[in-house]
């Protein structure tokens, strides 16, 4: 079984980000980057499926040269080889989906795993767009995957419970939080990852039109909520709920 997993380079979700004063973007001067946490889950699941069913795991990243750091991280987790599609500047989810489509047409994997959303733009679109562009099925927000012959049985985290679906392979799965607990690469694995194959394409080589459909015109700080008061005890809180907030 050949599995392709995506790794997106994102701003560290545990760091507080700030919008630049002119609204042109995020102030990246003191921000570090890491693999999108949901993509890490996607890579982990790919490795687990390989451990059970055999095959190969390929990690793919799209973006600037720096994105190779995150592809190498995927390789240090245990992926067999990496692909980097080098691009410059802004891409919307649609451009990314079309780039991934062309990589998939070259690689022809049986299963493609992506994080359900990237924690920077929070778009939650690429897996679904990609499935439609390929004419494949999609199983989004997966919390459990069982592979049998040519189908995947996937439990999906949906509002109100768990939905179970069956999907023909090849197909697209997007990973939700509880799918697994990603491993931490050990130092020898990090060394090994540096020697693994990393194929580089540029987007024009893949023949992908880079015109986005959605353009970010401006970013702004959201309206901040002001902190309120600290109450000393339960009777004071109840008084506040009644007299100030008027919710009881």
């Amino acid at each position: 079984m050949k599995i392709l997993a995506t790794v997106k380079r994102v701003t560290d979700p545990d760091m507080k980000i700030k919008v630049k004063e002119d609204g042109s973007g995020i102030d990246l001067s003191s921000i570090s980057f890491k693999v999108n946490p949901f993509d890490e889950i996607a890579v982990e699941e790919s490795l687990k499926i390989k451990e059970t069913h055999g095959g190969e795991v390929v990690v793919v990243g799209v973006g600037s040269r720096n994105a190779q750091t995150e592809i190498r991280y995927g390789l240090s987790m245990g992926a067999d080889r990496g692909i980097h599609v080098q691009t410059e500047g802004y891409m919307d989810s649609d451009v990314v989906a079309r780039i991934l489509k062309s990589v998939i047409e070259i690689e022809q994997p049986d299963l493609v795993l992506l994080g359900k959303q990237a924690v920077d733009d929070d778009n939650n679109q690429v897996a679904q767009l990609l499935a439609e562009y390929l004419g494949w099925g999609q199983a989004c927000f997966a919390s459990k995957i069982d592979i049998t012959n040519s189908t995947a049985r996937v439990e999906r985290e949906v509002d109100g419970g768990i939905e179970v679906i069956e999907m023909d392979l090849p197909g697209i799965v997007s990973a939700d939080l509880r799918l697994n607990e990603p491993r931490y690469p050990a130092l020898p694995d990090v060394m090994k990852a540096n020697k693994k194959e990393l194929k580089i394409y540029n987007s024009s080589e893949l023949g992908v039109e880079m015109q986005p459909k959605v353009i970010v015109k401006q970013l702004a700080e959201p309206p901040r909520r002001k902190g309120g008061c600290i109450v000393p005890d339960v009777p004071a809180l109840i008084r506040w709920l009644k007299e100030e907030a008027k919710v009881i």
Partner: peptide, 18 residues
């Protein structure tokens, strides 16, 4: 234009659809 939140609600983006 459309407005939506990004970065876990730490930025509000103004977006144009072409």
């Amino acid at each position: 234009d459309y407005i939506r939140e990004m970065w876990a609600g730490n930025a509000q983006a103004t977006l144009a659809v072409v």
